[in-house]
C-alpha cells in the first residue's frame, strides 16, 4: 500500500469537492472492502475522503411511506431497525446473511453496494484480470470458477457481485441516491450494477466523483411478504454460492406483484424480469413458480465447473416463493 493523503469530510458537498479536486481519490466508508483491497494493492488511492462522519446515518420515513436509509447507516443498524425488519424483512435477512457481526458493525449501506467482486484472480496482482487491469485477460474463465457467474457474463469477465444486501434491494424495487459534481440523482437498485460486457472494470453506473448518499425503499413493497435465502459452503461467514430475494403480493388469488432477484449468479444482482412477467396474474402455485423460474434460468450459460448453480438457484427460489405464497394466502384469509 502506497502512502496516501486523508481528508475527513464534514458535508456531502465538501466530500464531493474534495474528491473532485484530487486525482486518485476514493471515498472511505466502513473500509471493510476498500482497506482489504488497498492491502492487496488492488486499490491504490492517492487520497481518501472519509465520509463516515457525514450526516447520512439515519433511517427515516418519507411522507409517501417510503423509507430512506442513509448511506452511512451501518449494516448491523440497518438490519436491526424496526421499520426495516417489519416492512422489508428480506432486506434485514439479506444483510444478516452476509459477513460477520464485526464486519456488519463497520460496513455501511453505501459501501456494501460498492464492494468489489471476491474473484480470486481480481484479488491477485500477479494474474490477469480484465476488471482490475483492462485488457490483461481473464484468469477465471478457464481457471478455477466454481463460484463464478452463470448469467450475463461476457468473454471478458465472469465475476459475480458478492453483496447479499444489494440482492434484496433489487427485489424490493429500491432506488440508490447519488450526489456528485452534476448534482443529485437516483438510479433503480436493479440498474445500479452493470453486466461486464466489454467494460468489466466498471461495476456500477456511478459516475466519477459521485457519492452514494442513501437508498430509498418504496412504499409499494413495504409490508409485503418478502424473504431472502442464501446457500453457502459453511453455515455462516461465507459468500453466497447462490441466493435469492423475493417479495410477493397476492390479490384475488393471483400474483398481483412480484420482485425476484438472484445473488451470486451474475456480475450484478440478477433481477428476474422474465420470471416476474410470467407470474403476474397467475395463481401462486408450485407449477407457476417452477415455470417462471425455469424460464428465467433458461438464460443461464454455466461454465465448466459451475453448472450446479442453476438447480441451486432454482431450488431456493421455489422454496422462497412457495413460503411467501403461503404467507400471503394466510394473511389474506386471517
Amino acid at each position: 500500500m502506497k502512502e496516501f493523503a486523508y481528508v475527513r469530510a464534514g458535508s456531502v458537498e465538501e466530500a464531493t469537492s474534495a474528491y473532485a479536486s484530487h486525482a486518485g481519490a476514493r471515498y472511505l466508508g466502513g473500509g471493510t472492502n476498500l482497506v482489504d483491497l488497498m492491502k492487496l494493492g488492488v486499490e491504490r488511492p492517492a487520497i481518501l475522503v472519509d465520509v463516515t462522519r457525514l450526516p447520512l446515518d439515519a433511517v427515516e420515513e418519507l411522507p409517501d411511506g417510503a423509507l430512506r436509509i442513509g448511506a452511512m447507516v451501518r449494516n448491523s443498524d440497518l438490519a436491526a431497525h424496526p421499520l426495516v425488519r417489519d416492512r422489508y424483512p428480506a432486506l434485514s435477512q439479506a444483510v444478516l446473511a452476509g459477513a460477520s457481526g464485526q464486519l456488519r458493525n463497520a460496513a455501511t449501506t453505501g459501501g456494501n453496494l460498492l464492494q468489489r467482486t471476491r474473484c480470486p484472480y481480481f484479488q491477485d496482482l500477479s494474474k490477469p484480470c480484465n476488471k482490475r487491469e483492462p485488457g490483461s485477460g481473464c484468469g477465471a474463465r478457464d481457471g478455477v470458477h466454481r463460484d463464478h457467474a452463470v448469467l450475463g457474463h461476457s468473454e471478458h469477465c465472469i465475476a459475480t457481485h458478492p453483496s447479499d444486501m444489494a440482492v434484496a434491494l433489487t427485489a424490493l424495487d429500491a432506488r440508490v441516491e447519488l450526489y456528485g459534481p452534476e448534482g443529485a440523482r437516483s438510479v433503480a437498485a436493479a440498474d445500479f450494477h452493470r453486466l461486464p460486457g466489454d467494460r468489466p472494470e466498471q461495476d456500477t453506473e456511478i459516475r466519477p466523483g459521485e457519492l452514494v448518499t442513501g437508498v430509498v425503499l418504496p412504499a409499494a413493497t413495504a409490508g409485503l411478504p418478502s424473504a431472502y435465502r442464501k446457500a453457502r459452503d459453511r453455515a455462516s461467514y461465507a459468500f453466497a454460492l447462490a441466493s435469492v430475494a423475493a417479495v410477493l403480493r397476492v390479490s384475488d388469488g393471483v400474483v398481483g406483484g412480484v420482485g425476484l432477484a438472484f445473488g451470486a449468479l451474475a456480475h450484478r444482482p440478477w433481477r428476474a424480469r422474465r420470471a416476474e412477467e410470467a407470474l403476474l396474474g397467475a395463481a401462486p402455485t408450485a407449477a407457476a413458480f417452477e415455470h417462471a423460474v425455469d424460464l428465467e434460468l433458461s438464460a443461464a450459460r454455466p461454465l465448466r465447473d459451475n453448472a450446479y448453480k442453476v438447480p441451486l438457484a432454482r431450488g431456493i427460489a421455489l422454496d422462497v416463493l412457495s413460503r411467501l405464497a403461503d404467507t400471503a394466502l394466510t394473511r389474506r384469509t386471517s
Binding site: G31, T32, L48, T52, Q102
Partner: peptide
C-alpha cells in the same frame, strides 16, 4: 465490536 485490521487509525 469491529475488526481492527480493517480500520485506518486516522479515521
Amino acid at each position: 465490536r469491529v475488526n481492527s485490521c480493517l480500520l485506518f487509525a486516522v479515521a
